[in-house]
Structures are given as structure tokens and as C-alpha cells.
Design a protein around this nucleic acid. Structure first.
Lengths: 106, 106
DNA sequence: ACATTAAATCAAAAAAAATTGATTTATTAA
DNA sequence: TTAATAAATCAATTTTTTTTGATTTAATGT
């Protein structure tokens, strides 16, 4: 019967789509730099990060949104400030231990 | 002195660029499917793969080149045939153990 | 209430990546 | 030598992503 095969195919399709989104988020050296900087501190707000990597705010927000939508970052809003930190679980699930120094938390 | 800092920055820049290329190669669900299919067999030629994923040859060659340039695949030419297989070392270095079933060799 | 700051969003333009079908190169087989 | 097949490459088009500067929303301090 084709039912099971179809279901399995859809699951794979969905799986590939999920990883496509995550890898797409990592497929930019500026975003990797962002991940690396956030990884080093426990969390960072947009305006501090904007100075650290010398990037205009709107551009930075654009890139942060991509990482956030891919669930590689977590956002916590306090007042007018937005603090971003690594989504450790997701990053650990995705990347090798060899990449820990760069993008993975301890 | 700024010398050391500059050297370190250039190294990081190069590192991010390297990973950007690799993640960009993985940032496409068709290419993930290709990786997955090649992972399942030990190696595959273009024409067989073309039928397996129902993709025209020129398009497939384009995607294979991207994976090859990112050093995620290895190509071996025998006569008119090109056989592609996983670059296990690179893939293992990059991806987590959790992704082994999909894209990592045993 | 008003001015200021943080951050997200928007629309237009620019840049990069993917698709398409045709062509080229090289090997094999008749 | 000729025909057939495998695979890479090319150029033109289409699609997607990124950049930019302006605008909006919301919270804070005076």
C-alpha cells in the first residue's frame, strides 16, 4: 500500500525543510559572527551587538530574525531592550562537538 | 600591540568564510536529499541519482558542484561516469551525532 | 505630555543564487 | 569513423536574499 510510503516521504520532506531553514540561517558569515559573539557572552542586546560588529541596527535586526526564526537563538525582552542568547539545545543537536568553541555552548 | 589582534581577526574571518560555504551548501532541501541518498549507498553516479530524485542532469550537476566545492562530497571519475560519495571526515567534523541517520556515515 | 532611545518593520533597489535548455567535452561501443 | 551516452558548462531568465534608509511601535526619563 502506498499510504505508509507517502507518510514516510512527507516526513522526510518536512525534515529536510526544517534543516534547510537552520542551515540557511547559518549560511552567512555575518550571522556566524553574531552566533559566535552571543556564544561568548551569556546574552547580548541589539544595540550592544550593533556596536560590536559594526552593523546598522535595521540590518542586524534582519539577521537576528533569521537566526531566531530558525530557533538557533532565543529572545528575551526586558523593557525596550531585546536580549538574545543561544538556543543551546538546538545548536547542540545540530552541530558537532568540534564546532563547540565557535558556536556551541560548553 | 595591534598585530596579534589583526592576525586573530583574519583567522576568524577565514574560519567564518569556510563555514559559510559549507552551511550554504547544506542550506537547500534538494541538496540535503542528495546527501541523504548518497549517504545510504556507498556511492552514486549522476545519471542514477538523476532518476532517483527526478531532477534534470544539468540542474543536478549544478547542485553536486556546490556540495563538492564545499568539500562535503568526493568525486571519483571512472570513464564517462562520475561517482559521488560522502566526504565522511568533513561531514563528521561539521554535524552532530544526532544527524548521523540522515547525513552522517556510521 | 514631550523628547529620547531601543528595536522591529517596510518598501525599493541591489546582489546573489537557482532554473532552464542548449552546447560542449570526453568516453565508449558499433 | 560515427553514433550514443555521461556529465560539465554556458548564457539568459527567474527567483530569492540582502541591503538601505525611512517609518513605526513601544518603553523610559524629564
Amino acid at each position: 500500500m502506498s499510504t505508509e510510503i507517502t507518510v514516510t516521504d512527507e516526513t522526510m520532506e518536512t525534515t529536510f525543510q526544517k534543516y534547510e531553514k537552520k542551515f540557511k540561517a547559518l549560511a552567512d558569515k555575518k550571522r556566524l559572527e553574531i552566533m559566535n559573539l552571543i556564544c561568548q557572552r551569556s546574552s547580548l542586546c541589539v544595540c550592544d551587538l550593533s556596536e560590536l560588529i559594526d552593523m546598522p541596527q535595521s540590518k542586524l535586526s534582519y539577521h537576528l530574525k533569521i537566526l531566531l526564526d530558525a530557533e538557533l537563538l532565543i529572545k528575551e525582552t526586558r523593557g525596550t531592550w531585546s536580549y538574545y542568547q543561544l538556543n543551546e539545545k538546538e545548536v547542540n543537536h545540530l552541530l558537532s562537538e568540534e564546532l563547540c568553541c565557535l558556536f556551541r555552548p560548553s
